[in-house]
Simulated assay, not measured.
Amino acid sequence: MRHFYGWATPNSQRVSIMLEECGLEYAVTGVNIRARQQFAPEILALNPYGKIPILVEDGRVIFESGAILLHLAERQGVLLGEDRATTLSWLMVALTSLGPFTGQAHHWTELAPEKPEAARAHTTALVDRVYRLLDGRLAEVPYLAGVTCSIADIAAYPWVAKHGWADRDLAPTPHLADWFGRMGDRPAVQRGMAIPAGARLE
């Protein structure tokens, strides 16, 4: 039995979408990060970093969303794209730039008690650069790794869904907007974005 630990965060949604895309059965435990449940002893016993998502499969504990995506893609033999190196390249853009930059922008546009304009401008500019990169790529191919959906798209989608966190509108990047619509139409994406049931970031 697989057991998924997560919440309504983009990194967690990467994993729930992947599990749904693979058609796998799994149990779910919600870990409310706003209530700091990620630091509960039973979670720290699985991931000493105190972070979600976490996947337990066949007694093996896997944490960090990119590691879980790769594990599932390789084990199930799906969503690795036409060329593995290309898929990994765009996966790393989502893991190392899109997600972290959007998270930083969210901090300086919404969460921080003080919001210096220089910090807000710097972090939103980083997000804008990544969006322009993705838009250029998606002007050439329908999905980030090529002609089919891959783990690169799954890693990117939940963070693009939070474009408001970086004061972004998708209209200036029409190819990214079209891709976002295609991804959002996928039933597995719709199911995965709603797991855990009732989880909210508030």
Results as ranks from 00 to 15, higher is better:
A27E: 15
A27N: 07
A27T: 11
A27S: 10
A27K: 11
A27I: 05
V28D: 09
V28F: 12
V28S: 08
V28H: 10
T29P: 10
T29L: 13
G30Q: 04
G30Y: 00
G30S: 04
G30P: 00
V31W: 06
V31Q: 06
V31I: 15
N32I: 09
N32T: 08
I33L: 14
R34D: 06
R34P: 00
A35I: 01
A35D: 08
R36E: 14
Q37H: 09
Q37I: 03
Q38W: 08
Q38M: 10
Q38N: 13
Q38P: 05
F39E: 14
F39I: 15
F39Q: 15
A40P: 05
P41S: 08
E42D: 13
E42C: 02
E42S: 07
E42I: 03
I43W: 02
L44V: 08
A45P: 06
L46G: 09
L46P: 03
P48E: 04
P48K: 10
P48L: 03
Y49V: 14
Y49M: 15
G50H: 12
G50R: 10
G50F: 12
K51Q: 15
K51V: 07
K51N: 09
K51F: 09
K51H: 12
I52K: 10
P53W: 08
P53F: 13
I54H: 15
L55R: 13
E57H: 15
E57I: 13
E57R: 13
D58S: 11
D58Q: 15
D58H: 07
G59P: 05
R60W: 11
V61N: 01
V61C: 02
V61D: 00
I62M: 11
I62A: 10
I62S: 07
F63G: 03
F63Y: 14
F63S: 13
F63Q: 04
F63R: 04
E64N: 05
E64R: 06
S65H: 01
S65G: 04
S65I: 01
A67D: 02
A67T: 01
I68V: 02
I68E: 02
I68T: 00
I68M: 01
I68R: 01
